[in-house]
Write a protein that binds this DNA or RNA. Structure first.
Length: 633
RNA sequence: GCCCAGGUAGCUCAGUCGGUAGAGCACUCCCUUGGUAAGGGAGAGGUCGCCGGUUCAAGUCCGGUCUUGGGCACCA
């Protein structure tokens, strides 16, 4: 037998005189490496440590430190979960158990719902199985053998899955003790490698994600390389909970929701102040980027929605009403209304691009289960705009939109942004030629700005490609906020035309675009991003004036009157000690506290304390105003 | 819409085996006029989401309904 040459990532080559497993190769390098190896990439293919190498190859050992290693750990933990479930509930049928962000889940079919107590039991059983350090072994079967086996143990979902695996693929199974699961692998060599996991929640989930199918029980878990990483993750979850916009909104008295208006928001004075600051800023940006603001009706005759095609597709999700024997719908979006404005009069190509913007108040009767605080509501406001332009203007418009979007996000302290470009789906309208042009225009616009983006093939809408912008907040969560979408269809459907250079009438290209998306949701994201500690320019209350005792209430009032013309300001003259007032203003996360006692009255000054406790000492009121103005630039 | 878990004072929550409700904070009044994260006292406040049922008796058990939360499905 000729020798087998294994090339490692550093380029070094190891030779073996006979077939050799990954584990043996690792051992030949060092015992400790063999211990920490949980898999390998052989010629680009992930495999187990038991994989037998029979010919020359490139090899990269995977330890738990590698990203692939963590994935293997999570996937193996999912199997461990399934094994534990089967030990405790033998009649349960297991279905699929993939790796997801931060962990894994397993969908199980069982005669009754699992309870939190069950979850504790299952987790305990998992720990037991880990301490037994059960070896995990790969087996390969023919399709018929595999189907026969899973039928024999009553795992019908597995049978269904196998029958859909392409004929030419090997059916691999993984066994740990008496538990055997269908799986492509790879897995850690034994259960003892799984040291840091926790089951996090129970939920329902449809078999194959189809709401017509049976609802299975999904058990979610998280798994990490070690206990430290696990506890860091759990801490992050707590952090996220602490930042929950609903909780902070209550603490800061921003808004509320109530039973009589599900999915719609009652904005309180402070919340509405915050809203208005955001809206006014967006209005400035509209001006800067040459948009014209418009306002269109909330309630529009059904016929317009029929023409636009929305009625047919979304009528169940639209609020409709009847008055004087006419049927109306409350607008779920602004585009058809903006097209009506475009259609007034005759538009020349010289007027393009025409950019119409609206803080469009829209209502959609979202499925009850979809509602989520102010992140997903039934009544919402888009920072919506539509750009009507000629085809050769698309790229420039998209590029300029990107500038605007990045300027806005930077202003809000959102600097980590992912970009996705979704291209033509299988079912679509329009010619391949126009799709080629459109997709190219979007991609080139991004490239011209030097932006990195991810291609999402087939994810576009049937009427045009789109770009989505995903922001990462300060604790790493992702939110899809902005988007720009090209639409070939709507202008044609609603009969929008412009007179081209050659005198012919043409349908304009239409770009739907938003930066915040829904202002309600964007406000919610900002609340969580800043944990309610808004920067000065956003803070609903920027300054609180606090007197130390009643003696200074007159002077405090004077100071307040001066400040309130320039800033969002409140005053607390209540009969409480200064410590108490500082505490309550601090809990309200007000950026600056102005404290006034006898000294300040005497010297005609104020004493300033920042939200974080920093004492800026005494200063004349004008100095303070200048300082804040400087900060607001 | 589907699965699971909740809904008790303005807020956060307690309420055992069914015997008609409690705390802290907030609120009102009084005392206190105090210099950087809670001074003291008194008082007021609830048909326990809503409708129905079981029971001598329901916050508690059962059914329905609305709504909230976590997921799933959906997201023009």
């Amino acid at each position: 037998m000729s020798e087998i040459r294994v090339t490692l990532p550093d380029g070094s080559v190891r030779s073996f005189t006979q077939n050799v497993t990954i584990n043996e190769i690792a051992q030949s390098i060092s015992i400790s490496l063999a211990k920490s190896t949980i898999g390998a990439v052989v010629n680009g293919q992930l495999c187990d440590t038991s994989y037998l190498i029979k010919e020359d190859c490139n090899l990269k050992l995977i330890t738990e430190k590698d990203d692939e290693g963590l994935e293997i750990i999570r996937h193996s933990t999912a199997h461990l979960l399934a094994q534990a479930v089967k030990k405790i509930f033998p009649e349960a049928q297991i279905t699929i158990g993939p790796v997801i962000e931060n962990g894994f889940y397993y969908d199980v079919s069982y005669s009754r719902p699992f309870t939190p107590e069950d979850l504790t039991l299952i987790e305990k059983k998992m720990s037991e199985l880990v301490s037994q350090n059960i070896p995990i072994e790969r087996r390969e079967l023919t399709r018929d053998e595999a189907i026969k086996y899973f039928k024999s143990i009553g795992e019908n979902y597995k049978v269904e899955i196998i029958s859909e695996i392409p004929e030419d693929q090997v059916i691999s199974l993984y066994a740990q003790g008496d538990f055997i699961d269908l799986c492509r692998g790879p897995h850690v060599p034994s259960t003892g490698k799984l040291k840091a996991f926790k089951l996090t929640k129970l939920a329902g989930a449809y078999w194959r994600g189809d709401s017509n199918n049976e609802m299975l029980q999904r058990i979610y878990g998280t798994a990490w390389r070690n206990k430290e990483e696990l506890s860091a993750y759990l801490k992050m979850l707590e952090e996220a909970e602490r930042r929950d916009h609903r909780k902070i909104a209550k603490q800061l008295d921003l808004f509320h929701l109530q039973d009589e208006a599900p999915g719609m928001i009652f904005w309180h004075p402070k919340g509405w102040r915050l809203w208005q600051v955001i809206e006014q800023y967006m209005r400035l940006m509209f001006k800067k980027y040459n948009y014209q603001e418009v306002k269109t009706p909330q309630i529009v005759d059904k016929s317009l929605w029929e023409k636009s095609g929305h009625w047919e597709k979304f009528k169940d999700d639209m609020f409709s009403l009847e008055a004087e024997e006419r049927e109306y719908a409350i607008k779920p979006m602004n585009c058809p209304c903006h097209i009506q404005i475009f259609k007034q009069g005759i538009t020349s190509y010289r007027e393009l691009p025409l950019r119409l913007a609206e803080f469009g108040s829209c209502h959609r009767n979202e499925a009850s289960g979809a509602l989520h605080g102010i992140m997903r509501t039934r009544g919402f406001t888009q920072d919506d705009a539509h750009i009507f332009c000629m085809e050769d203007q698309i790229q420039g418009e998209v590029a300029s939109f990107c500038d605007m979007l990045f300027e806005v996000y930077a202003k809000f302290g959102l600097n980590d942004i992912l970009i996705k470009l979704s291209t033509r789906p299988e079912k679509r309208i329009g010619t391949d030629e126009s799709w080629d042009k459109a997709e190219k225009a979007l991609a080139e616009a991004l490239n011209s700005k030097g932006l990195a983006w991810e291609l999402m093939p087939g994810e576009g809408a049937f009427y045009g490609p789109k770009i989505e912008f995903v922001v990462r907040d300060c604790i790493g969560r992702l939110w899809t906020t902005g988007s720009v979408q090209l639409d070939f269809l709507m202008p044609v459907r609603l009969g929008a035309e412009y007179v081209a250079e050659d005198g012919s009438k043409k349908a304009p290209a239409m770009l739907h675009r938003a930066i915040c998306g829904s202002l309600e949701r964007f406000t919610g994201i900002l609340i969580e991003h800043f944990e309610g500690k808004f920067p000065l320019w956003l803070a609903p209350s920027q300054i609180a004036v606090l007197n130390i005792s009643e003696k200074q209430s007159q002077y405090s009032q004077e100071v307040y009157e001066q400040l309130k013309h320039k800033f969002r300001c409140e005053i607390d003259l209540s009969n409480e000690k200064i410590g108490y007032k500082i505490r309550s203003a601090t809990l309200q996360k007000i950026p600056y506290l102005v404290i006034i006692g006898d000294q300040e009255v005497e010297n005609k000054t104020i004493t300033v304390r920042k939200r974080d406790g920093e004492d800026l000492g005494g200063m004349p009121i004008n100095e303070f105003i200048d300082k804040l103005n400087l900060e607001l630039v």
